[in-house]
Write a protein that binds this DNA or RNA. Structure first.
Lengths: 337, 337
DNA sequence: TTGGTCTAATCAAACGTTTGCGTGGTTTTT
DNA sequence: AAAAACCACGCAAACGTTTGATTAGACCAA
């Protein structure tokens, strides 16, 4: 009933030829005659022969497997990105294995170790919030396992990465608000420890100074991204001597908290909001942000996957230059308003 | 620089013992003396020895790899479920590979084939919308690859599965609305071809008849789950001679379309909505459903993963009985209202 | 002394596939 | 007719690890 899978050896024995000939026949090697080749293929098909992958991988010392490590799969951004990665790698007959760091540095270190033991051909990583040391990735290069970071990338250039320029995006966002006539624009930013916070701040300042406006540091509040933190920030803006007319929210979650609170106070009409896209359906909400920074997770995933394939298949000598790919972000204007 | 990984053989040569002793030493086999064992372990550590997984898998004929096939990873339900699966299987040192059918039957067939060639130890599957034939799964049993279906399951009992009883959930939902005083309850259902549609209908009817109310077939409309389809259904209800006061939406997407349209017509206040949870943030929306059927994707994923492990590790003879696990769904009342 | 039990290790096969090299036999070239 | 070229295939090693069978030596009992 539960037949052991057919092997090349068995085919060889039946046909009274050597296993190597069978292997070559199945691979259309020129040194196998057409007649024999067809006999091999026919028998293989009729016996339901399936190459034993573990044997091939072992023999070749390659796994055709790509590891993906990301913080949280149930975040829409990441599930979309890995969806792209899987689509892209499947085309090239690679297999994807993945794991979640759950934003823990220790877990990330463990996972990198595990992926290395699994002998992945390459790694795609979006780093955890907790990660500030990167030794665990450096070890990989000595094993010749290329790594491409995406979206959440380390703060230096000598790695391969794909990311969105949040700075540029923020410039676009603030410019958009300025063009709409806003002159006092506030920002609910994340913790100063986050690279992403600095990018937002830099973009904000660039837009403000480029437009010859005065930069008021009290209009940028660093919060912990919780609901209470958002409420505290909102209160500061509402009571600000220069009460802002527009607020840039760190992300859609913050925007949600903000909308909820401003509605409760019945002052939502006093503000135009802009946010960074996390939630696909945010535009369905009443008083939703009038614009969103789209970071193209699918595109980022695609590009990262293809870069990794390049690295895997490149001659070793060429691995000198680093891919630093920036995916341009767009400001998506919410038509509903 | 790029050192080839250390092998057991090398360790053996350095220590002047046989590879088998090294292997046994590393595995604490009793027939290796404590002194030798420690020498082996020390040297292994200092040489950064990592077992070559592909070799082990090949040798053991097991891959310690579980395949997961699901329709669409970027759907919140599925990303949560696979997140649970990964968490659960990582604990047991299994590796997860996954692929998306994108709701295509042909793709699903290809993927099952691919997973089989990858020699996965088992398969977790949520079937595609297009799938009505199941031969591709039956083939797996002859290769002794167990399959556990979750959420989207085939319409028969002689398979292993984990799912939520949408029927029970619907009974709860309708009962909830009845208790709130509603007497005319409508339902926007999916296409009749979908198993999920029948479950909803059955649940609806059971609740109605159990409460000795008259069942009015015109209050259940089968739609194609598009925005236009939802609008058409809504129009029928609005113009219905017995205009309903509550509507059960097929899912959150339909609910979103519905809310949008009813708001536009300014009749949203005339209806109480209930939906089935797909979108985590739906409750943040104004006029959101007053209750949602929670289907516990994380729990379903966990259970499916554990059942699969049971099947993999069970003695062959015991594989007779089928796991048919129903995860109870809950009606989550939206407090905001 | 013979036989038995234990300990600590070795030997060799096995898993399935790929691949460099070798080798008869036939055909072509000079 | 000898040399060269080519065709179609076989041989055997290799990839790294595990494991059943075996062994050499030490110790003990009768």
């Amino acid at each position: 009933m539960q037949s052991k899978p057919t092997t090349i050896k068995e085919i060889a024995k039946i046909l009274n030829i050597s296993p190597s000939s069978v292997s070559r026949g199945l691979h259309d090697h020129p040194s196998i005659g057409a007649v024999t080749r067809e006999k091999i293929k026919q028998l293989a098909k009729s016996l339901n022969y399936e190459p034993n992958n573990t044997a091939i991988l072992f023999q070749k010392g390659k796994t055709y497997t790509i590891g993906v490590i990301l913080p949280e799969l149930s975040e829409h951004f990441f599930s979309t990105a890995i969806s792209a990665i899987e689509d892209e790698l499947l085309k090239k007959n690679y297999t994807v294995i993945f794991a979640q760091s759950h934003d823990s540095y220790e877990q990330e270190v463990r996972l990198v170790e595990k992926m290395k033991n699994q002998r992945v051909d390459g790694l795609l990583v979006s780093i955890s919030k907790d990660t500030s040391k990167f030794d665990h990735f450096e070890k990989l290069s000595s094993f010749n396992i290329p790594v491409v970071f995406f979206d959440r990338i380390p703060p230096f250039k000598n790695v391969h990465y794909v990311a969105c320029s949040i700075e540029n995006a923020t410039i676009k966002a603030v410019n958009f608000l300025l063009k709409k006539g806003h002159r006092t624009i506030a920002m609910i930013n994340g913790p100063t420890t986050l690279f992403a916070s600095n990018e937002r701040k830099d973009g904000y300042m660039q837009a403000i100074t480029f437009n010859r406006l005065k930069y008021d540091p009290s209009l940028i509040i660093n919060c912990d991204l919780t609901e209470q933190g958002t409420i505290d920030a909102a209160n500061q803006f509402i009571n600000h001597k220069r009460k802002p007319t527009a607020i840039v929210a760190f992300n859609d979650y913050v925007a949600l908290f903000l909308i909820k609170y401003l509605k409760k106070l019945n002052v939502i009409q006093d503000f135009d909001l802009v946010s960074y896209a996390n939630l696909p359906i945010i535009s369905y909400i009443d008083n939703s942000p009038i614009a969103s920074v789209e970071q193209y997770p699918y595109l980022q995933g695609q590009k990262a996957a293809n870069i990794l394939l390049d690295l895997i298949n490149a001659p070793k000598a060429e691995n000198q230059a680093y891919y630093n790919t920036i995916v341009e972000s767009d400001l998506v204007i919410n038509e509903e308003k």
